[in-house]
Design a protein around this nucleic acid. Sequence first.
DNA 1: AATTGGCACTCAACTGAGTCGAGTGCCAGG
DNA 2: CCTGGCACTCGACTCAGTTGAGTGCCAATT
Lengths: 346, 346
Amino acid sequence: MVSERGLQVLRAIVQDYVDTREPVGSKAIVERHAFGVSAATIRNDMALLEDEDLIVAPHTSSGRVPTDKGYRVFVDHLAELRPLSGAQRSAITSFLDEAGDLDDLLARTVRALTQLTGQVAIVQYPSFARANLSHVELVALGGPRVLVVLVTDTGRVSQRIALVVAEPTENDIAHLRARVGSLLVGRRVADCVQQVTTTLADGPRPGNTLDAIADAVLRVVGEELEEFRQDRLVMAGAATLAKRESDFRGSIYPLLEAIEEQVTLLRLMSEMVADEQGLSASIGRENEPFGLVEASVLASRYDGSAGGARVGLLGPTRMDYSSNLAAVRAVAHYLTRMLEDDDSAR
Amino acid sequence: MVSERGLQVLRAIVQDYVDTREPVGSKAIVERHAFGVSAATIRNDMALLEDEDLIVAPHTSSGRVPTDKGYRVFVDHLAELRPLSGAQRSAITSFLDEAGDLDDLLARTVRALTQLTGQVAIVQYPSFARANLSHVELVALGGPRVLVVLVTDTGRVSQRIALVVAEPTENDIAHLRARVGSLLVGRRVADCVQQVTTTLADGPRPGNTLDAIADAVLRVVGEELEEFRQDRLVMAGAATLAKRESDFRGSIYPLLEAIEEQVTLLRLMSEMVADEQGLSASIGRENEPFGLVEASVLASRYDGSAGGARVGLLGPTRMDYSSNLAAVRAVAHYLTRMLEDDDSAR
DNA sequence: AATTGGCACTCAACTGAGTCGAGTGCCAGG
DNA sequence: CCTGGCACTCGACTCAGTTGAGTGCCAATT
C-alpha cells in the first residue's frame, strides 16, 4: 500500500514531469520539494509507487514518469485546482459579455478557453431536444421553392428550403402555415419529430396538389428537426496540437481527425462521468475506444435554460491538470451565468 | 540558357523527387527515364539548371531538389495534367448529385477533393454581393424579439434575432415588413448595404416606439447583409497535414493556424492570378506574405448563377502538381455544372 | 559543339568503441 | 523507518573511421 508521503511524491513527480518534460529522479524531488527526507527514502517510496503501477521508468536507470493510472490518481485525489487570476477572470467576463447571439457566445467561449489553456477547446451545443418549438414560418420564394423556418423557445433558429411540386399561392402558404403550426407549435422538439413521422406515415396518399406540397414541407420540417436533435461541437485551438506535438509519441493525426470528424469527440464527451462538481476527466488509455490513447479530455457541465451540455478541452496526457481543470470549471461557470442571466441575447 | 533537354531533366527531377522524397542524382535519372544520353551529360544539364536556380543540391555532393522556382517552371510549362480515371469521375458526380442545398454541395465538394488528392481541400462560398435580395421576412417571437430572415435570389438564406424596445403587434410587424421590403427587395445585396446605412443615418431620430423598432430591425438587417458580403470558406482534410508532416521542414503550426483563421487563406486565394483555364497555383515562397513558405495552394475558379468563387487545395510544396491540378480542375468543373444545371437545389 | 568515360573529391550517413553521468536497487548501520 | 554508501545500468554523447552516392572537371571521342 502506498503511504501518505508516497502520494505526495506522486504529486511531485506529476508536477515536475509536466513542468520539465523529463523523467523525474529522486534527487530532483528532494531538491525541488521540501520533503524532510533523503533521496534514498524517496527512492523507496518510488519503488512502491512503481509496484502500484502509478509511475514507470522509461529505462532501467532513469527518472520516473507518471502512468495514466498515476495521472488518474493525481486528478482524483491530489490536484488542487489552481484558481484563475483576477485579470483572467475579468478578461473572460468582459469577453463573453460582448457576445451577441448563442453562436457568438459559444464561439467566444472556446476562444477564451483555448487562450487560457493553450489546448484545444470544445463546447457542445446545448441540447435542444427538451426545447419547445415556438414558431414555424413558411415563405414562398417564387417558383417551386418554399423556405421553412423553425424557431424554438430557447432561441435557436434554423431554416431550409423545400422543393415542392408546384408554385403555391399565398393562400396555400397561409393554409399550410396554420396546418403545420397547429400540428407542432408548442410541443417539445423531441415530440415534434414523432408527430411528423406519424403524420407522414398515417396520412392518406396525397390526393391533390396542396396535399403533395404539405407532404414535401413536412418532410423538410422533419429533416430539420432531426438536425436539432443532433449535437454539434464548436472548437478552437486545433493548431495548438502542432506546438505540443513532441508530447505525443505517435502522430497527431488521430487527434486532428477526431477534431474534424466531431462525432468521436461527441461520443467521448457524452460518455464521461462527472464528479459532484460537474467536472470530469478522461485520461490517456481510458480513451482507447476512441483511438485517442495519448490524449486527455477534461470537461465540465454547463447549464442554460435550453438544457445544458458540456464544455471542455483536449490535450496531451502530459498536461497541467490543475490549471486546466480550473480553467474549464471557470469557463463553464461563466457560460452558465451568461445563459441564465441574459435570456434575451439568445 | 536552359536547353530543351534541360527542361525535360527538370521535369524528371520534379517527378522523381515528388515520388521518392529524396534528392535525385544523375544516375537515377538515366535509369528511370529514357534519355538517350549518359549520366555525365545529364550532370552538365543539371549544372545549368542549378545556375538558373531551378534546382539545388542540399549538400555539396548529393542529388538535386527542385527550388520553388523550379516547381513554378514545372507547373507553368512542363506539367501535363493527369486526367482522372473514369471511376473517379463517376464517383465525384454521383457523390455531388446527392447533395441537398448549397451548404451540402460545398461540403461534399471539399470532401471529394480531399479524398481525391489527400490534401487539404478548400472551397470559397460563392460571392453574394452581386446577388439580389428577394425576400425579407420578419417574425415576432414573443417578447422583445423579432426574427429577421433574408433570402437572396441565389438561394442563400440567413437569419438573426433583433432585440427591440417593446413587443411589436402583428400590425407593427406587417407594417415593418412592408417598409423594409420596399426599401430593399429586388436590389443587389451590395446596394442594400448602402441603402441601410444611409437610411439609418439620414432618418430622423426615432420619434415613437415603432420608429425605434424599425431602427433596431434595420440595424440587424445591416449586420446580416454585412455577413453576406464576407466570404467564407469550407474546408476538409486538415488532418492530412499531420500525415505529410515530414514534408515540412518547420512545424505545421502556421498551416493549421491559417486553416483555423480562414482569413489568411481567403486573402491568399483572392490574390491568386488564374491562367486562361481558370487554374492558378501559388508555390512555396510565393506565399511568404501569408506565412506559408513551405506550402503550395492550387485553385480553380468555378461559376454559378450566384457568381463564382474559387475551389482549391493546400499542401506541401513537394506535391504532385499534375494529379492535384487535374483534380482541382475536374472538381471545379463538376461544381460549376451542378450550380448551373440545377438552380432549384440551392 | 555535344557527348562520354574516367577519376579525384566531398560529405552525409552509418558504425563501433569509449566515456560520462544521472539515476537506480540494495544493504548495513543509525 | 530512515540514511549514506556503493556497485551497477544504460541512455546520451563524442570521436574516429568507413562507406557510398553523387558531383565537378577534363581529356578523348563523335
